[in-house]
Each structure stands twice: as C-alpha cells, then as structure tokens.
C-alpha cells in the first residue's frame, strides 16, 4: 500500500514540476527524465527482488552493466573523445570496485545482493558524476589555455606536462561539490544512507559511522575515477607528434 502511495505522489510531483517548468522550456525534458527515473528505479527494485532468489554471483553482471552505462554517460559528456568509452568505463569500474571491496572484506556489509547492488550503485553513480564534471572542465581548460599548452610543447615538454595544470584544475573543480558536502555533512544535510538507516530504525551512532565511512570512500572513488579518466584521456587531445589537435580551441 505504501509503495502505491509513494509512486502516485511521484507521478503527481513530476507532472506538477513539468507544468511549472514549461515556462523555462524544459517541461518536456522533466516529464521524460521523471518517467525514466520512475521506470528505471522500479526495474531496479524488481531486479533486486529477483536477485534475492539467485546465487550471489548474479550481482556482478548487474554492477558491470551499471558501470558501463555510467561510463557511456561520462563519455558522452566528454564530447565522445577518441578511445574515451573504454577509458571511462575502466576508470569508473576500477575506482568503484577498489573502494567497495573493503566494506565487505572487513564485514561492515554482509556479502549479499541486498548490500552489494545498492552500495555499488552509490560508488558508480558518484564516480560518474565527478568524472563527467572533471572531463568537461579539463576539455574546457585545454581549449582556453591553448597558448600556454603550446608554449610548453614548444619547449619540448610532453603533452602530459603541457596539460598538467589543466588536468589539476579539472579534478579540483569536479571535487569542489563533494568537498563542500563533506564539510557540511550532518549540519546542512543528512545523507541518504544515514537517512535510510534511521528511517529503518537503526541506531543513530551505527548509521552515522557507516555513513561517514561510505562518504569518504565515495569521495576517494570519485577522485580516483576522475584521475584515471583525465590521465588516460590526455592523449586524445594531442596527435602522435605531440601537437595539440586543431579542433581544440582554434
């Protein structure tokens, strides 16, 4: 009964928001995004329901699929850079897995689909957001700082040195929202996992401890994913003869 109410409320809100947003010309977009989100989350819930009945290893293809879709989203944000898709999927997958495994190794979460899928999705989703912001800014910096990059190249510097300051700026900008969130954690907002645990009746101290462990790991995953992505994307902006490609800002 509760789920029917929540879904009906969601549909109502999506329609209301879209009606209001028509004046900004994004009414259609909100309807589409809201419907997609609703359908996708219901599909996910059904998949998790099915996974409860299946052996544990079924969870992993689901996570890989999530990482692939996240990678594609970041790849699209990068303007579909050459070799960008495998690099984006690789960066998001490696960073998420690396930070997810310890939670199960040290026993914070039991090794069950009910924990693997949602926690994995938090890591993948955040790594995707940070990576998308980072690659977008990195590309913008390279375009705007063409003169500086070519001055480095003209001195015989390798592309990774020439674009080093742009890479740093890309990662820094992408991490600013996460850093601000971390600073205000518990003051301005109570994050999702803790909220969920509290609503589920968990002990507040336990909920807070798990939340902060998750939060810092998510931050680390975002940082690792964006670092890997930007590092391996640098070559896409340069030719084999270490020339900044002509479509980058001329």
């Amino acid at each position: 009964m509760l789920e029917v109410l929540a879904i009906a409320f969601t549909v109502f809100l999506v329609i209301l928001s879209a009606a209001y947003a028509r004046r900004f010309g994004i009414g259609k977009e909100i309807i589409l995004a809201g419907t997609r989100a609703l359908v996708q989350i219901l599909i996910l819930a059904s998949i998790i329901l099915i996974l409860f009945q299946k052996p544990l290893y079924w969870s992993f293809p689901i996570l890989i699929m999530m990482a692939a879709i996240a990678g594609y989203t970041t790849y699209s944000r990068s303007g579909k850079l050459e070799k960008g898709l495998p690099v984006a999927i690789f960066s998001i997958t490696i960073a998420s897995i690396l930070m997810l495994i310890p939670f199960f190794l040290v026993g914070i979460f039991p090794v069950e689909a009910r924990y693997i899928i949602p926690s994995g999705s938090i890591f993948i989703g955040n790594a995707m957001n940070v990576s998308s912001l980072a690659i977008d800014r990195y590309k913008g910096e390279i375009k705007n700082r063409r003169a500086e990059i070519e001055t480095y190249l003209a001195l015989g510097a390798r592309p990774e040195i020439a674009a080093g300051a742009c890479l740093k700026q890309g990662i820094l900008s992408a991490l600013i929202p996460s850093i601000d969130n971390m600073k205000n954690l518990g003051i301005v907002w109570i994050p999702g996992v803790m909220t969920g645990m509290l609503l589920g009746g968990a002990d507040p101290m336990e909920a807070a401890s798990i939340q902060i462990a998750l939060f810092t790991s998510i931050f680390a995953a975002g940082m690792i994913a964006s670092n890997l992505l930007l590092h391996f994307s640098t070559d896409s902006f340069f030719t084999k003869a270490a020339q900044l490609k002509e479509d980058m800002g001329q």
Binding site: E148, T151, A154, L155, G156, A165, A241
Partner: peptide, 23 residues
C-alpha cells in the same frame, strides 16, 4: 619527422607573439 618531436622542439626554440609566464 625523423626526430622525436620533443627533441626537435628543444633544438628549434620558439618565442611567441604574446608571452606566457608559467605559474
């Protein structure tokens, strides 16, 4: 083209119209 590009640029220096100071 037979030189490594970085080595070629070390041998052939360039000064641009608008100078760029590195950080």
């Amino acid at each position: 083209r037979s030189y490594v590009p970085m080595e070629l640029r070390r041998r052939i220096g360039m000064v641009f119209q608008v100078p760029v100071a590195f950080k």
